[in-house]
Amino acid sequence: MSWVEWAFDGVLLLGVVGLAFGVLVVRDLYHSVILFIAFGLLLALGWVRLGAADIALAEAAIGAGLTGVLLLDALHAMRVRGGGRVT
């Protein structure tokens, strides 16, 4: 493997971990959810790197996409009902 690939993998992993960390640390829930979706997508990218393209697709669709949407929906519902920001 070339050093480029190594570097790419390294940066990718750093990004994934950083995003994961961000999801939990960010105060605003909306930002948090967005970060979570990004995390899912980046994770899927990592899986592609590991030669699991089909699984990565599933993760992108389900893990990042569907779960993300559901989270956003829930957040919305709670904001509406709760009457404002939910943190």
Partner: peptide, 28 residues
């Protein structure tokens, strides 16, 4: 640690993501 439920849900997903990543990595 997180108190908000949505965050807990996301944390659980992250935890799962870790587990899955581990599995996929060992496939190689």
């Amino acid at each position: 640690v997180c108190r908000h439920l949505l965050k807990k849900v996301m944390a659980a997903n992250i935890m799962g993501g870790g587990a899955f990543l581990f599995l996929i990595s060992i496939a190689r």
